[in-house]
């Protein structure tokens, strides 16, 4: 379990993080989102003990990052947003170096390095120079390095940044597997669709302050659209009257004359009754799809647009 206790971090007069408090259960996958400069990386660096809080503390499995950073580090695998390169080092040597730094015995090293390369899908690149790896391969190697000492907690800062779609899918699959192993995972990312797929919890930061922290289900329920997308095979103007009898309003969509958004009750029974009524009235329903909750919408609703407007004044 990880507990942030009123953690603040200031750099002079700049408050990078303001009184962050939350409890992260063991095995959770926490997505950390927020605009640029919202304090995401600061929160991750505080958790990894790379910086110390100005006030407050973080407790990792009963250990304080302030009082016992050395032991906290043993429990954490960290993958930064940049992949630091050592010249003239192969992928195997790269992992071997960090395994040695982790004081791993030679026999253990020789067993774990090939298996780690296989796990992150880099067996074929074992003798390839690290400098010549693609961005996706480098990210996977970085993840392999973070996993070398089998940490309970993984802290990933923008792991999917700059990856092509295939590499993103591979990384997501790997992270799913790690979640299934019971690892607690912290991910900072701007790719919300990835986070929605991976995370059990979401932490939204803005200007260093906590905007929201909750399970993904609760957070998206907060903004869940009360609409059902209905597509017809051919025009049927009576859909408006039939839907109204069930308590739903019908809104034509601008792009498709055969598609409507119906808003009203979100209860499953009411939606089932609506579908039955439409079919009974011979409305040619092609698809009937309650809108899925969108993390993007939750994020947009919870964060202000000031930051974005400041960053893109000509937008």
């Amino acid at each position: 379990m990880i507990e942030f206790r009123s953690v603040s971090k200031s750099y002079g007069n700049t408050h990078a993080l303001v009184s962050l408090s939350c409890v992260i259960p063991r095995g959770a996958t926490v997505g950390l989102i927020g605009p640029n400069g919202s304090g995401k990386t600061t929160a991750l660096r505080l958790l990894t003990t790379l910086i110390t809080p100005t006030s407050g503390d973080i407790i990792v499995d009963g250990l304080s990052v302030c009082a016992d950073p050395t032991h906290v580090r043993q429990r954490i695998g960290y993958m930064p947003d940049t992949f630091g390169v050592y010249e003239s080092m192969t992928a195997t040597e790269y992992l071997d170096f960090y395994a040695r730094c982790g004081t791993m015995a030679p026999a253990q090293r020789s067993a774990i390095i090939p298996s780690m390369l296989a796990r992150v899908g880099l067996s074929d690149a074992a003798q390839t120079a690290v400098m010549s790896l693609s961005r996706g391969m480098a990210q996977r190697l970085s993840l392999g390095r973070a996993l070398l000492h089998n940490p309970d907690i993984l802290v990933l800062d923008e792991p999917a940044s700059g990856l092509d779609p295939r590499a993103r899918i591979e990384l997501r699959t790997l992270l799913h597997a790690l979640h299934d192993e019971g690892k607690t995972i912290f991910i900072s990312s701007h790719i919300l669709s990835d986070l929605a797929d991976l995370c059990t919890h979401m932490l939204i930061l803005e200007h260093g302050k906590t905007v929201a922290y909750d399970t993904l289900a609760n957070m998206t329920r907060f903004t869940q659209q009360q609409s059902i997308s209905v597509a017809l095979t051919h025009p049927a103007p009576t859909i408006i009257d039939v839907a109204a009898t069930c308590g739903y309003s019908t809104h034509p969509t601008a792009t498709d004359p055969l598609r409507f958004d119906l808003t009203g009750s979100t209860l499953a029974a009411d939606r089932a009754a609506l579908l039955r009524a439409l079919l009974a009235a011979d409305i040619p329903v092609h698809t009937f799809a309650p809108q899925e909750a969108a993390l993007e919408q939750a994020f947009l609703q919870m964060t202000s647009t000031d930051q974005h407007m400041q960053e893109t004044p000509h937008a």
């Binding site: 990894t48 790379l50 580090r73 960290y78 930064p80 630091g84 390169v85 050592y86 960090y98 004081t103």
Partner: peptide, 16 residues
């Protein structure tokens, strides 16, 4: 130089 290459944090976080 490790700081410039952004590899220093990774060394610090090992058990060295």
């Amino acid at each position: 130089g490790e700081r410039e290459r952004q590899t220093f944090d990774l060394i610090v976080l090992t058990q060295l």
